[in-house]
Structure formats: structure tokens, C-alpha cells
């Protein structure tokens, strides 16, 4: 690892000004992506700004409209075991409880996961399927506009994710086929029926451009919410990832299987 300088701000404003001061500074949340990257010398931030001691980034609360607000520095383990999340958004609790392993879940955070936008990460599927809103220290960004490309987001240079607000959902569920070695998604499908009755389906792990919605499945589930309704929907393998772990056709098949499992789990 190259040399770096560690900072521990207590407030969001302090973190923001530290970040703005240097071109080469990076935010450090759970470190479960950033530290391995620094150890491999693929990242060499001059400064790392620890977000784990900022109160404003913590906490899980129910919104007045029945949605859930989760602070950016909330860990995967905290989300998985939250009574509010389990009751309101069971799919998000399952998703968080299936990220990596227990040790990764004790450190890794929601904010770090979405800012990184790994094409095989789990959270992007939940945000996109639920039509969540990403709140930053500068503005609010709809999930539809947030995930722009592989490892790319709409975040500006000095922008910090502070929370994610999920709307009320009648049903939500997530099913993933983890890569047996890394635990990241080979294919993961999040299905949601929102408070207004609309249906949204998002897929991760499989798209060449990262997370994406599956319109044909949304239509099928809109008129018939059942595992059978998605069983016949095939995702075209033209835009899917192909690598040593699996071909595009294999991932296309996994998407249908994961969608069936997710709908069955949602009930």
C-alpha cells in the first residue's frame, strides 16, 4: 500500500471540506472495497476520510409514508438485522444478509456499496427495483439516474452519499446466485411491488453495463404476480456479461431462475 494520511471527521461538513481540499482524497466507509484496492496499489489516495464516526450518516428510520431511510454508513449486518427493514422491506434485509460473509457485513456499508457500483454488487438491484432516492450532501438523485455505467455513478467529485430513502413497498424480494468463490452475484434479481401497485424488476451481476431493469418481467408480473408469469420470460443474452465464471446464455437462464425464486419468496 502506498502512503496515505488518515482523517476522522466528526461531522459531514468537516468531511466535505477535507474532501474538497485535495484532488487525491478518498472517502473511507467500511473499507471492504477500498482497502483491498489500496493493498493491490490499484488506488493510491493521498488522504482517506473515515465516515464511520459521523452521526448524520447512521441510523435506520421509517418515513411518514411507510418507506425506510437508511444512513449511508449503516453496515450490511445492521440492515440485515433491523426490525424495521425486515418488516417493511424484507427483500432488502435478505439482500444485505447475503453480501459477502459475516466479517465483510460487519464493516461494509450501503453508501460504499452504491458509490462503488460494482456490476456484481447486490444493493444496486434493490435501489433500482424499489425506485429509491439517493440523498447526498448536495442533492437528491433518483436511483434511475444514479447508476450510470460500470463502476460509474452520477456522484460529483466532492459529493458524499448521506442516506438512501426507499419508498413503501407491498412486496419485495431478492434472489441471487452467488459466485461460489467471491460471493458476489453471478446473477441477482430484485422484484418489487410498490405502494402504488406498480411492479419493478432489476437485475445485477449479469449486465455488461451494470444493473438494469427487466421490462418484460415487469409487464408479466404487472398482470399476474406469480413465479409462473416470469418463468417464460427470457432475457436476451446480447447485452449480458460473459467471463470465466459463465457465458451470457448461462447468465440469461440464471436471471429467469432467480426471478422465479424472488417472486416465490415475495409471496
Amino acid at each position: 500500500m502506498y502512503e496515505t494520511t488518515y482523517h476522522r471527521p466528526k461531522t459531514l461538513a468537516e468531511a466535505g471540506s477535507l474532501l474538497a481540499k485535495s484532488d487525491e482524497a478518498k472517502l473511507l466507509a467500511g473499507g471492504q472495497t477500498l482497502i483491498p484496492t489500496m493493498k493491490q496499489r490499484l488506488a493510491a489516495p493521498s488522504d482517506v476520510i473515515d465516515l464511520r464516526h459521523i452521526e448524520d450518516l447512521k441510523g435506520i428510520t421509517e418515513t411518514p409514508s411507510g418507506g425506510v431511510r437508511i444512513g449511508a454508513a449503516v453496515t450490511h449486518a445492521e440492515v440485515a438485522s433491523s426490525d424495521i427493514v425486515k418488516r417493511q422491506l424484507p427483500g432488502v434485509a435478505t439482500l444485505a444478509g447475503g453480501i459477502g460473509d459475516p466479517h465483510v457485513r460487519h464493516m461494509g456499508t450501503l453508501g460504499g456499496s452504491i458509490a462503488n457500483n460494482d456490476p456484481a454488487a447486490d444493493y444496486p438491484a434493490a435501489l433500482l427495483a424499489l425506485g429509491a432516492t439517493v440523498v447526498t450532501n448536495k442533492r437528491e438523485i433518483a436511483a434511475d439516474d444514479f447508476f450510470t455505467a460500470l463502476f460509474e455513478t452520477a456522484l460529483g467529485e466532492d459529493e458524499i452519499v448521506t442516506a438512501v430513502v426507499f419508498p413503501k413497498a407491498e412486496k419485495s424480494a431478492y434472489a441471487k446466485y452467488p459466485n461460489p468463490a467471491s460471493r458476489y452475484a453471478m446473477a441477482g434479481v430484485f422484484v418489487a411491488k410498490l405502494g402504488d401497485g406498480s411492479v419493478r424488476v432489476a437485475a445485477t451481476g449479469a449486465g455488461q453495463g451494470g444493473v438494469f431493469r427487466i421490462g418484460a418481467m415487469e409487464q408479466a408480473l404487472g398482470s399476474n404476480w406469480s413465479a409462473d408469469a416470469v418463468a417464460g420470460v427470457k432475457v436476451s443474452d446480447g447485452d449480458l456479461l460473459a467471463d470465466i465464471h459463465g457465458s451470457a446464455a448461462y447468465r440469461a437462464n440464471l436471471l429467469t431462475v432467480m426471478a422465479k425464486r424472488a417472486v416465490a419468496a415475495a409471496g
Binding site: Y6, G31, I35, P36, D50, P102, H103, V104, H106, M107
Partner: peptide
């Protein structure tokens, strides 16, 4: 490398001592 930090299991190779 798993140790407990404030009572929780974490990978000590993936955390700075400063953290």
C-alpha cells in the same frame, strides 16, 4: 486474520490500525 473489534468479527487485513 479475523479478530473482534468492539465485539464484532472483522478481517484485520482489511482495516487500518488508525480506524
Amino acid at each position: 486474520c479475523v479478530v473482534h473489534v468492539d465485539g464484532k468479527a472483522v478481517k484485520s487485513c482489511t482495516m487500518l490500525a488508525a480506524q
